[in-house]
Each structure stands twice: as structure tokens, then as C-alpha cells.
């Protein structure tokens, strides 16, 4: 594992048991995240992105990890015992969960909630914890005098900032944000994303942003990883993934989104996401792919070098061989 990589996931498999058989939510995924980078993990519902992120916290329930390895800053997550996991969580890796802002305790002030989080993980006494809360609130652009407010007195954007402050209270190295702006209005969304970006720069964080909205990545991430049916199908620098995607799914996804002012025709992707209980043979995307050929129905491709990006697509090799011919 290179020193530059803070996250090193190799051949990870996470499965859900269902009455009809096991469902692979994460299906042989390799992922390396460089220290200090912002990685966008993009995909539609059911692609496994949240499950993948949860494994970094040692939380994937009810899915069970049945294969592969997860290393965060050289720590082997899968071998940690309960107590070690508890110490690892929040101190090394923290997460902003989807809809966390709605899960804030309505009967406690935001100060007391952050204090509780701090004291659960450290030996801070109440006063030092309170001072830390004031620092944290300023860090996320909330006036510290508002620490005695209750969640319902705050706007959606402010609640999300409180959640971010809670995630940062132990100065983690790795921050995972799961759909951090989905429930927010577009203006507030811009503010929150900018805040996350600033925090990343100020604190030297490594950030993984999970979203279904690939367009927010253009301003946020260094690299984008696109997931489909439990696999990473493309990964590369943000600009390259957005402007020169190699994988047909990425291409189709980008064509499905109207971009303001571009006036291009948008196109949906025919068919529907595959059943993970009985996925298609070979490449998971082939039933919906405009370019599928016979190899695609038989063999599932791993990530192959496609120039600027890596893509799990046999077309990449096809092009190469024709180029070399």
C-alpha cells in the first residue's frame, strides 16, 4: 500500500442475505483513495455506493463482508475488534449520513448533542468540550452564540452544518459524506458544498462524497468513481470522466442530465437497473448497453486502462487491439 493512499480496498465483497439468495451489494471492488483528495462516488439507487462507504467505518449491516480487504491508513478494518473499531470510528474516519440532519435529537440543543458526541469518544470534560463546540461551529460558519438552539429552530442548511461539525469533532483524517445536499435547496446546496471544499483544504481532509448527482462533482472532486450494480465501472480524474468518459454507462448517465445552457438533447437509459439477486451474465450493464458485443455477455470486465480513465469495459481492449493492428 502506497503511503499516499489513505484508503486501500482490495477485491471487496459485501453480501445481503435475502430469502431468495444472497445479493452482492458490493461485488469485487478495488478502490484506492489518495490522501487529501476528494473522491466522488457516483451512482443511481441500488448501485452499492452507500454500502461500500459504510464498510470503511466497519458498518455494513445488514450486509456481511464475505471477501477482500479494507485498509484505512494501514489499519486493517476487518480485523479490528469491537473496542478498537469504536476508537477508530469518528477519530480516524467520520461520516455524514444521508438525512442525518433529520436525525438530530429534537429535544436537545445542538451544543449538547455535539458535546455528547465528543465526550462519547474522548475524555474531555464538559467545559473543554463546550469550547471545542464553539470552535467547531465557527469552523462550519455557524455563529457560536447559536449553540443553545434546538434543531427545529435552524434552517435545513444550518442543520446540515451542525451535522458536519459533529463529524469533524475528533479531527478525522477521512470524511465520508453520503448525499450531503440531497434534501436541500440549490442555493443552500452550493453553500454546503463550498463549505465542505473549504474544510477539506483547511484541515487537509480526505473526502469521499457519495451522490446520484454527478454534476455536483465538477466543482468538488479530484476524481470520480462511477458505480453500477455493485461494481466500479469507471474511475478517473473528474474532468476526464465528465468530458471524455470511456464507459458506456458513464456516457449514458452524462447524456441523461440536462445541463443548463447547453441545450443538448437528453436521453434516458433504456431498461432498468439489474436485479442484484440474479444479475446478468458477464458485464452487468450489457443488457442496456448500445455497444455490447458477444464478449460482454460472457465475461465481466475488470477496470482496464482507457487512457485518461480506467473503465470496466471490453470496448477499451477492442479499441486498443484495433489501434495496434
Amino acid at each position: 500500500m502506497s503511503n499516499d493512499d489513505i484508503v486501500d480496498i482490495r477485491d471487496l465483497v459485501a453480501e445481503y442475505p435475502t430469502p431468495q439468495g444472497n445479493v452482492k451489494a458490493v461485488d469485487h471492488v478495488d478502490l484506492r483513495v489518495r490522501r487529501g483528495e476528494v473522491l466522488g462516488l457516483v451512482g443511481e439507487s441500488g448501485c452499492g455506493k452507500t454500502t461500500l462507504a459504510l464498510t470503511l467505518l466497519g458498518m455494513s449491516n445488514p450486509a456481511k463482508i464475505t471477501g477482500g480487504s479494507i485498509r484505512v491508513d494501514s489499519i486493517d478494518i476487518l480485523s479490528l475488534r469491537k473496542e478498537e473499531l469504536r476508537r477508530y470510528r469518528w477519530a480516524k474516519t467520520a461520516m455524514i449520513f444521508q438525512s442525518a440532519m433529520n436525525a438530530l435529537d429534537p429535544v436537545k440543543t445542538i451544543e449538547s448533542q455535539i458535546v455528547e458526541t465528543i465526550r462519547q469518544h474522548t475524555g474531555y470534560n464538559k467545559d473543554s468540550a463546550r469550547r471545542r463546540v464553539a470552535d467547531l461551529l465557527s469552523l462550519v460558519n455557524i455563529d457560536p452564540s447559536r449553540s443553545s438552539a434546538y434543531p427545529h429552530e435552524l434552517s435545513g442548511g444550518m442543520k446540515q452544518r451542525v451535522v458536519i461539525a459533529m463529524a469533524l469533532c475528533l479531527t478525522p483524517d477521512l470524511l465520508i459524506a453520503d448525499e450531503p445536499t440531497t434534501a436541500l435547496d440549490v442555493v443552500v446546496q452550493a453553500g454546503i458544498l463550498r463549505t465542505i471544499k473549504r474544510l477539506q483544504q483547511e484541515l487537509g481532509l480526505t473526502v469521499i462524497i457519495i451522490t446520484h448527482d454527478i454534476s455536483i462533482m465538477s466543482e468538488m472532486s479530484n476524481r470520480i468513481a462511477v458505480m453500477y450494480a455493485g461494481k466500479i465501472v469507471e474511475i478517473g480524474p473528474t474532468d476526464d470522466v465528465l468530458s471524455r468518459p470511456a464507459h458506456p454507462y458513464t456516457k449514458a448517465l452524462l447524456q441523461a442530465i440536462p445541463d443548463i445552457g447547453s441545450r443538448q438533447k437528453i436521453q434516458g437509459i433504456p431498461g432498468s437497473p439489474p436485479s442484484l439477486r440474479s444479475p446478468p451474465t458477464g458485464c452487468r450493464f450489457h443488457p442496456r448497453c448500445a455497444y455490447a458485443f458477444d464478449r460482454c455477455t460472457v465475461e465481466s470486465p475488470g477496470l482496464l486502462n482507457a487512457g485518461a480513465t480506467e473503465a470496466a469495459c471490453w470496448l477499451v481492449e477492442k479499441v486498443e487491439t484495433t489501434e495496434h493492428a
Binding site: 440549490v186 442555493v187 446546496q189 452550493a190 453553500g191 448527482d213 454527478i214 454534476s215 455536483i216 465538477s218 466543482e219 465528465l242 468530458s243 452524462l254 442530465i257 445541463d259 443548463i260 445552457g261 447547453s262
Partner: peptide
Amino acid sequence: LRSAPRLR
């Protein structure tokens, strides 16, 4: 318009 995310 300024706040809306754009692909490019």
C-alpha cells in the same frame, strides 16, 4: 443560476 451545479 450561479448556485446550480454544472457539468462543465
